[in-house]
């Protein structure tokens, strides 16, 4: 019997400090057994449990794209026991990964549609996975216009800076990067909160347009009225939720919203679905 609690052993291959406060690092992980990588077949939007022997596990969205082979990437905020320990680990150290878990953004429904990605802060990880996935030469033609509205408090708090610059230069993706505030005279992108920039830059909602929204609760709260104003159908607004988790497979009982387990039936829900679920998240 397969043991779904057993992590695949992985080696830390690279560590990138992402933000100026040094609280966010990206860990590139390589499977010790190549066969495990094949078993770990995932879609953009899913998450995994990162396992550190002696400390425990944490559920983290997968930041690498299914089109990137040979490694997995996770961007981790330093918050508690496991993440603090992980931030002190070094290249070459051995840890574990379980997954992939949960559902993913509805890639089949979004084929031949416009996709508007709205992200804030460090919730941009599975959105990065999604952008890389959509921009892959094998996939780009499956989607119409792609818009990305991504904001952070300051320029130094934006994740994946080099990639953001590269995407800015492309003509097959519309980037709308923003910061809450900056005194950097060389800042050449937007200044303003994500909901404001969404109001200014996002295309109007219609049956051919989907919005994926990921960010802190305050951003989601103020973005929703903007999307309503732009006439986005609630079934076309896609969100990814966070919850305290342990098992990742819908068994341990703690991450439910109503009868749905965020780890197994989520983390991706449409706003239409959330409207019919208890407000307990």
């Amino acid at each position: 019997m397969q043991n779904p609690y057993l992590p695949y052993p992985v080696r830390i291959d690279d560590i990138i400090t992402e933000t100026e406060d040094k609280n966010l690092k990206t860990f590139k992980l390589v499977f010790l057994n190549p066969a495990d990588e094949e078993n770990f077949s995932f879609q953009a939007g899913q998450f995994a449990e990162l396992s550190i022997a002696g400390k425990g596990e944490i559920p983290i969205g997968i930041a690498s794209s299914p089109t990137e082979k040979g490694f997995l990437a996770f961007t981790v905020n330093k918050v508690g026991l496991v993440t603090t320990h992980l931030h002190n680990m070094k290249v070459g150290d051995i840890m574990g990964v379980r997954g992939p878990f949960g559902n993913w953004y509805p890639w089949d429904l979004m084929e031949n549609k416009n996709v508007v990605i709205i992200g804030g802060g460090f919730a941009f990880t599975t959105l990065r996975s999604s952008i890389v996935y959509m921009l892959d030469p094998a996939n780009r033609s499956k989607f119409k216009d792609i818009h990305v509205i991504y904001g952070a408090r300051t320029p130094g708090m934006l994740l994946y800076g080099d990639e953001l610059s590269a995407w800015e230069k492309r003509d097959d993706i519309n980037m709308h990067i923003t910061v809450d505030a900056t005194d950097d005279p060389d800042w050449k992108y937007n200044i303003g909160f994500v909901p404001t920039i969404t109001d200014q830059k996002a295309p109007a909602g219609d049956e051919n347009t989907y919005a994926i929204v990921c960010g802190p609760p305050i951003m989601i709260k103020f973005t929703q009225p903007v999307l309503d104003k732009l006439q986005y159908d609630h079934d076309h607004i896609i969100m990814s939720l966070e919850m305290r988790m342990k098992c990742g497979i819908g068994i341990c009982g703690r991450c439910n919203i109503g009868k749905e387990y965020v780890c197994k039936d989520g983390p991706v829900f449409t706003l239409g679905q959330l409207n019919n679920m208890p407000k307990e998240y």
Binding site: Y5, A53, G56, C247, R254
Partner: peptide, 29 residues
Amino acid sequence: WCFDIQDEVSKTAGVRMRNWDSCMYPLFT
């Protein structure tokens, strides 16, 4: 049936275990 998963280490020997948990406790969520 709800449970928690925890690691416990003594010197260099460790175990991962699960323990009954309860939705009555604030830490649960």
